[in-house]
Computed example of a mutant assay.
Amino acid sequence: MKRAFITGITGQDGSYLAELLLGKGYEVHGLVRRSSSMNRGRIDHLHTDQTLHLHYGDLTDGVGLVNLIRDIRPDEVYNLGAQSHVKVSFEMPDYTASTNSIGTLNLLEAIRAAGLDCRFYQASTSEMFGSTPPPQNEESKFHPRSPYGASKLQAHWVTVNYREAYGLYAVSGILFNHESPRRGENFVTRKITKAVAAISAGIQDHVELGNLEAIRDWGYAPEYVEGMWRMLQVDEPGDYVLATGVGHTVRDFCEAAFAHADLDWRDYVQHNDSFERPSEVDALIGDASRAAEVLDWRAQTTALDLARLMVDADRKDVDRLLHSD
């Protein structure tokens, strides 16, 4: 039985990855932060699986990571833990850098210190490209436009360095935006689809958004975690872009989401300057040709289909809430 260690297991990607690996017969260990309230809703349905084990810890605690890696001795490590909200990174740059950059270094050093022969996956991001014009691929120039993008770029290069300096099987998945009904509610796609569900049920009258003209390449998270796993199954480590190859504006996503509930988005969307970034990333559209060639991976779900899928899920949640009594 292969053994995997996942940081960020309670997040969107971590929960889908845990499902995938458990389904493939892995023993899965996950890192969770200690807090006064439980935040494990995305993995609650997995708790009965006897091959899932959760451990308290934090990426900023290097000693704790050394002990965990030494004790668990995983075959595969997936570093998905991060402060991943771009707007928040402008407000909390120190915390973002500590978690995303130093946290990755701590984890890589824990693997090296344990003398572990394992395979390591680093969750890189399209935000590292920033102002570089699309389409962006593995050879495109990096120019991050936020503390989040910069912190992830450092983590990306540290991963490359450990691969080259120590011979570690270490890969970076440069994933473009990927969403699902498990997406955090403060991310724009989920904010939109939750608003559609609430407005169509008559319990909300509008939603406030920032830049509607930003172009993103949105895919479906369960497909992207399959790509993560595939990156660790090939003989030689490398870095891969995962993307659909098609860009849409936030306005396009709004229109599709509201239309799916027979609503005109223009009647309900209001602009709020406070949701604008200090420095914007205008367009991210990925070229995943290398992943298609080497990993036989291709995105299947389009952004507009994704909007409809997420609206359906959020409308079911609202209906369940309204009829729970």
Rank of each mutant, 00 (worst) to 15 (best):
I69W: 06
D61Q: 09
D296R: 08
L116A: 07
A155M: 02
S131N: 01
K316A: 15
D312E: 15
M310D: 10
H45M: 08
P278C: 11
S36R: 10
Y95H: 05
A214K: 03
D282G: 01
L108T: 04
Y240I: 07
Y220F: 15
M1R: 03
E164Y: 09
Y224C: 06
W265Y: 15
H85F: 13
F90D: 05
R42H: 12
I69D: 01
K191L: 13
R190T: 02
I199G: 11
S126Y: 04
K191H: 12
Y121K: 05
L232V: 13
L20D: 03
S37W: 13
H143Y: 00
H85D: 14
N211E: 14
C254H: 08
A123T: 04
T48C: 10
R112D: 10
G173T: 05
D49F: 06
L31A: 04
S101F: 09
G227K: 09
I285M: 00
H178T: 14
V188T: 13
F142A: 02
S37L: 14
R216F: 03
E109P: 00
H85P: 01
L209Q: 09
F129I: 02
R190P: 00
K2S: 14
E76Q: 10
D287E: 03
A307Q: 05
C118R: 09
L22A: 02
N211T: 07
M1W: 01
V77Q: 11
F187I: 11
A195P: 02
L322D: 07
A113K: 14
R145P: 01
I199R: 07
L168V: 08
L242H: 00
S172Q: 09
L175F: 07
H143R: 00
T51E: 08
F275C: 05
S36A: 15
S37M: 09
N67P: 01
R34W: 11
H47P: 00
E185T: 09
N67A: 11
A165L: 15
S279V: 14
A170F: 09
P147Y: 06
Q136T: 00
D239F: 01
G202E: 14
A18W: 11
N161A: 15
S279A: 13
Q300S: 04
L108I: 11
L168R: 07
I174V: 13
I111H: 01
L295Q: 02
A114L: 14
I69H: 09
T244Q: 09
H53E: 11
R277D: 06
G130Y: 00
S151E: 09
L17R: 05
R266T: 08
F129D: 06
Y148M: 10
G173P: 01
F253K: 07
L321T: 08
R182C: 05
H271W: 15
A283R: 00
G167I: 12
D296Y: 02
N39G: 06
L242E: 02
A291D: 05
E280K: 04
E19Q: 15
A303F: 08
Q204A: 15
L242G: 01
N106L: 06
G25E: 12
S172L: 03
A155I: 03
N186Y: 15
G167M: 13
A198H: 07
V63M: 10
D264Y: 12
Q300C: 03
S274V: 11
